[in-house]
Structure formats: structure tokens, C-alpha cells
Amino acid sequence: MRFIKHWKAVLLSLTIVATVFLIWDAIFTHNGVWGFNPDYHLPFLLFGMPIEEWMFFFCIPYASIFIHYSLEYFKPNLLIPQSITRAITITIIVILIPILIYNFGKAYTTVNYLFLIVLLVVSFFYGIEHLRRFYIAFLIILIPFFIVNGILTGTGLEEPIVWYNNEENLGIRLLTIPVEDIGYAFTMLFGNVFLIEKFKKKE
């Protein structure tokens, strides 16, 4: 598989996506859209965020996209037909647009779904081939996602590690996980895959 041979593309992609998400994260933390329980992290903060949060945007995407590329290596023919991939993408966009319009102004919902819709529209025209596999990989990624994110948001704990202001989201939880987190994860992870593929072509 030798995933390491594309380290430049992966590192560059991780850095670009992490920068965008860290800026978003810092603004939301500052404005109380979400926050972090100090009982669960080190006392070192940078722009109001724990060091662990900074590491999150490199470690979690790397581990997740490795799942995607492992699937590509071991199951190269496991792809959704292009027509179905386009239909799935259009359906998600059509569902998200009215949710975004109706809830416009709720910070997490608005920014999250705006980013996701833009990514899906761009990918519909320029990255549909990568979505054919990523939709499958994302279903696999959701397994550890629900376990880890469930714990972070309070499943099995007296208090959550990461808390959310429900005034800034839809208020819909999957166990303890805000439903927006799924879109957040998709944007962060496929954003990396999309950029990696572009950078690999330049290599």
C-alpha cells in the first residue's frame, strides 16, 4: 500500500483543512457555541482551545482517511455507480438547503451545512469519482465516530468533555451527539480526500 509515499500531499491537505477548522473552532469557542470541560484536558490553551483539540484536526483525519485509502487498496472495485453517487449527492444537497434556510442564524447549523453544501456542489462537478468510494468508507468511519464522539459528548460520563450550546444547533441528538457533527465530520474528512487527490496529481 505504501501510503507514506504520498506524505507531502497528505500533510499539505491536513494542514490546509486543519487551519480552516481551527479558525472556525476558535471563533465558536470564543463565542460560546461550544466549549471544553477542563476536568478532561491539559491546562495548556492556545486561542482558548486545549492542545488536544489542536491535535484532533491532524490525528483523527489522518486515521480516517487511512481507512478510506485502505479500502481503495484492498477493495479497489468496491465503488458506488456514478449515477447513484450523483443521485445521493443531489439528494443530500436538496435536503440540506431547506434545513439551512429555515435555521439560518444558528451558528453551528449555518456554518456547518453551508460548508458541507459547498463541498458537495464542488465535488459533484470535480470529485464525483472520489465520492464513489468515500460514501462507503464514511459508513465504516461512522462506527468509531459514534463510539469516540459519543464519549466526548457525554455518553457514559457525568459531564461531557465537549459541550454544545443548543441555541446554536438543531437540538437533535443521536444519543449525546449533535446531528450536525456527522456533516462536520464528512466535510473535514472528504475535504482532505478531495485535496489529497488534487495534490497527488501534481506529484
Rank of each mutant, 00 (worst) to 15 (best):
I90M: 05
Y108E: 15
E159H: 15
G154R: 04
L152A: 01
R133E: 00
V162C: 09
K106T: 11
S83G: 12
F74A: 04
I101F: 09
L175D: 14
N166M: 11
P61F: 01
E129L: 12
V148D: 00
I84R: 06
L114Y: 06
G156M: 10
I65V: 11
E167R: 14
T153S: 07
F134H: 03
F124V: 02
T153V: 10
T89M: 08
T109C: 10
I182E: 04
P76Y: 03
I128K: 09
I172G: 03
P160T: 02
I143A: 07
P76E: 03
F104H: 11
A63Y: 01
E129S: 13
P61W: 03
F145L: 08
S70P: 00
F124H: 10
V118E: 10
I93G: 05
R86V: 05
V118N: 11
T91G: 12
Y62M: 09
S123K: 09
I172D: 08
N103H: 13
I80T: 12
L157Y: 01
L78S: 03
I95G: 02
I143S: 05
Y73T: 03
N169Q: 07
L78H: 01
L174S: 08
L96D: 12
T89C: 14
N112A: 11
I80S: 04
I141L: 07
A87Y: 11
L175A: 15
I182N: 00
Y62N: 02
I182F: 11
P160D: 09
I95K: 10
N77K: 15
V179K: 02
L174Q: 09
K75S: 13
E129Y: 11
F125W: 12
G105D: 00
I172W: 11
Y69V: 06
K106Y: 10
G105K: 00
L71K: 04
W163P: 00
N165I: 05
L170F: 10
E158T: 12
N112V: 06
L157P: 06
L131E: 05
V118Q: 06
Y135F: 14
L116G: 05
V122M: 12
I136V: 10
I128Q: 10
G127D: 01
V94L: 15
N169W: 06
L100K: 01
I177Y: 00
G156C: 09
R133A: 01
I67C: 08
F125V: 09
I136W: 03
G156H: 06
P61A: 09
R173K: 15
V122P: 07
I141T: 04
E159Q: 15
T91K: 06
V179I: 15
L78T: 06
L142Y: 01
F145I: 12
L96Q: 11
Y73Q: 08
E158W: 09
F115A: 14
S70W: 14
I93D: 07
S64C: 15
L157G: 01
R133W: 01
P144G: 06
A63L: 13
I97Q: 07
E72A: 09
